[in-house]
Amino acid sequence: MSLAESRPRPDGPARGRPRSEAVERAIMEGVMKLLEDGVPLAELSIERVARTAGVGKATIYRRWSGKEELFVDVMRAAEPPDPVLPGTSMRDDLVVLLESLRRRGLASRSSAILHNVYAQMKSSPKVWSAYHTCVIAPRRALALEVLRRGQRDGELRPDVDLELANDMFMGPMLVRSVMRPDADLPEGLPEEIVDTVLAGLRPVSSTVS
């Protein structure tokens, strides 16, 4: 898997570079090469990455604080990009978010490397914690903001617990993607999930003509 088109990371604190996209790309592709060669995540040291990428360890540490931060960036670049929300309605935004989850599920199924790496991440507390903090938590916060806006705009009943509602919308796609790898992930599934769940959560007045 090539990271030649690696995606930019969200803005964050400066890490004392001069920045070189070519050098960063070489480092991230070095990580992927090691993974493709079957090197376990636990053995993926900065020294080994530097040797594979043809750079010095200091070059890596000028860009990433350690293996966990580097690995999170590699995984973020290997995954489908985070979506741009249309902002037209809560329903439309939720459909886009679930479509992104569906595409990640398909990518994991089609890539033995991604599937294997996800499994290894969960067995490495430091790496999983970094991935959760930098990737999963912001995605969940975005979904909750969509629900919060929908509740404010009258698309969601005011008594609905937003944390629970988020699980209700995202849960079915996650179950199919992660816990049921044999289950279909067809086009149109995001709309079906959102509309089914929303039928029970939208204000009654909004369903009456």
Rank of each mutant, 00 (worst) to 15 (best):
D182V: 02
V194R: 05
G105E: 08
Y131T: 01
P86N: 04
E192S: 14
G105A: 02
E24Y: 10
E163V: 13
I46P: 05
D11L: 14
V178E: 13
H115T: 06
S124Q: 12
L185R: 03
L142D: 09
I193N: 01
C134P: 03
S206H: 08
L189N: 04
Y118R: 08
R7N: 12
T52E: 09
T88M: 08
G150M: 01
M28A: 07
A119W: 10
P81S: 11
L201D: 00
A53L: 12
D73Y: 02
T207V: 15
S100Y: 06
G200K: 09
D161N: 06
L34S: 02
D161F: 01
G66C: 00
E79S: 14
T88W: 00
I136L: 11
E155W: 03
P158H: 06
L94I: 02
S206G: 07
V95H: 06
G30Y: 01
H132A: 12
V84M: 09
R48W: 11
P181M: 10
C134L: 15
V127Q: 02
E155G: 10
V72N: 06
T133S: 15
S129Y: 14
L189Y: 05
N166I: 06
M168V: 12
G16H: 15
W64T: 10
M121Q: 12
E29K: 11
P186Q: 04
Q151E: 12
Y61M: 13
M1F: 06
T207F: 13
A53K: 07
R62S: 04
A14N: 14
S129C: 11
M90S: 02
D195K: 09
M170H: 10
R102S: 04
V95P: 07
A107C: 04
M179T: 08
V175T: 10
R63D: 03
S6K: 15
E187G: 04
A53Y: 00
A141N: 02
G16N: 11
R157L: 01
V127N: 07
E21T: 11
R149T: 11
P80R: 09
L3E: 03
P13S: 13
P190D: 09
A130I: 04
T207Y: 08
G38Q: 05
H132E: 10
G54A: 07
V74L: 03
P158A: 00
E192H: 10
D73K: 08
A183V: 11
P158S: 09
A143T: 05
R9P: 03
V117T: 08
L162G: 01
A199N: 09
D161A: 09
E47I: 13
R48Q: 05
S100A: 13
N116W: 03
S124W: 01
L198A: 01
T133E: 13
D153T: 12
T88N: 14
P190E: 07
R7Y: 10
P86K: 03
M90A: 00
R25W: 03
V72S: 01
D93K: 05
R157Q: 09
V39S: 07
R91E: 15
R19Y: 15
M179W: 15
L70T: 08
M173Y: 06
A53V: 04
S2E: 14
G150D: 00
M170I: 05
H132K: 14
